[in-house]
Every structure is written in C-alpha cells, then in structure tokens.
Amino acid sequence: MLILAFDTATPAITAALCQSDAEGGALVRAAASTVDARHHGELLTPQIRDVMARAGADLGEVTHIAVGIGPGPYTGLRVGLATAHALADALGVPCHGVATLDAVALASGREEPFVAATDARRKEVFWARYADSRTRTGEIAVDRPADVDTGGLPVIGHGAQLYTEVFGAAAADPEPLYPTAAAIGEIVLRRLAAGEPLPEPRPLYLRRPDAVLPGAPKKVRQWQT
C-alpha cells in the first residue's frame, strides 16, 4: 500500500507519502509541513507535488488517499477534503478520513492518558481524551477552554498552547501542536491492515452554519412616525 496523506484542519498544511512496511507499520517516504493559517488553498497541492517528487514516486502509484477530516476551521478543512475527493476521483483510488485530533495524539507518542485540543476559533477548542497516543476514549467536542473537562490530565496541541492561562500546568508541554500527515497515513495503514473501519472522508464540523432567519424588512419611514 502506498498512501498519500494530508491534513489542513489546523494552521499546519501537512502532506506525506507512506508505505506499508513488512511489520505492518508505516514507512514515511517523504513528508512536509508548513504552518500558515491563511494559505491552505495556495500551499497544499504544491506541497503534495513536492512530497511526491522527493519520494521519487508518481501519483499513479498511490493506492489510497488519507485525509484529515477535522474538526478544524472550516475553510482550511475543506481545502484538504476537496483536494482528497478530487485526487481519489482522478486516480481511481479509495479515500479514507482520519480525525485530525487522532493524528495530533499519535504524533505525540504518549503512553499515558492525556487530552488533545486544537483551535476552534471563537475562543473555543476542539478536544478529546486519549488513553494513549493510539486510543481515543471519548467523543470529540467543541467547548470553551474553561469548560473542557481535562480530569487533571496533561493537555497537548495548539489548543493547549493558545490557552495556557486556562489550562495552567496541564499545558506545560503542549507539543505536538499540530497533526502530521505521517500520523494520518500511519493510522489508515494500521486500520486497513487490521480490517478496522475508517471514517468516510467527510468533514467533522461540530457546529451548524451561522445563519439567522430574516425578520420583517426595516421600515424606511420610521423617522416620520
């Protein structure tokens, strides 16, 4: 299996080409990450092209697409998903989703329980609890940092770094701040090898769109009444 993995659900644009090794693990042929919260749309495809070139591989050899499905700020998140859908369609290969927080967790390599949190904007974080780097123990939620039930566990990720004043000592060691595409690829490789189900490549938004129903039209003659 040759997996092209990427994620754009955080300020990081990350891409990697992962190959299954003999032990069922992931061999990272090439990887790249750039932190630039405002240019996911410009940077992702050139980064994928560069990763392929550095790996000396052709897109036609890719057997699976793996993409981070968030949650994360919506505009950036959709760059990764739209790219994944179109690449999978054009290459005729399957596309799988990975929760972005699961990739942050895996990249941490931690063996003890922790909380992973990413920035949800609007003074909130996306977060979930983990028993170790490979095992999420609850649903992913969006909350204000003060409302996150950390259970006294360390908090990692960009969300921890942004709100150290709320999380205090629990956020003393927030690395890694962002997911890595290598972790996205490894999660897909491992689950495919184990025959475990993977999420559809559809975005986790966790919030409804902001939209207000219109009221009655404003009066234009109110100054006369």
Partner: peptide, 18 residues
C-alpha cells in the same frame, strides 16, 4: 471566499493528478 476555495482546490487536484 470559502465557496471559491472548494472549486479551486478540486481543480488543482484534478490538474495535478491528470
């Protein structure tokens, strides 16, 4: 902005893959 970005992202992926 957000709407344009979906089409442009997909178009880039198609162009690169093809």
């Amino acid at each position: 902005a957000g709407a344009l970005l979906v089409g442009v992202s997909a178009a880039k992926a198609y162009a690169m893959a093809l």
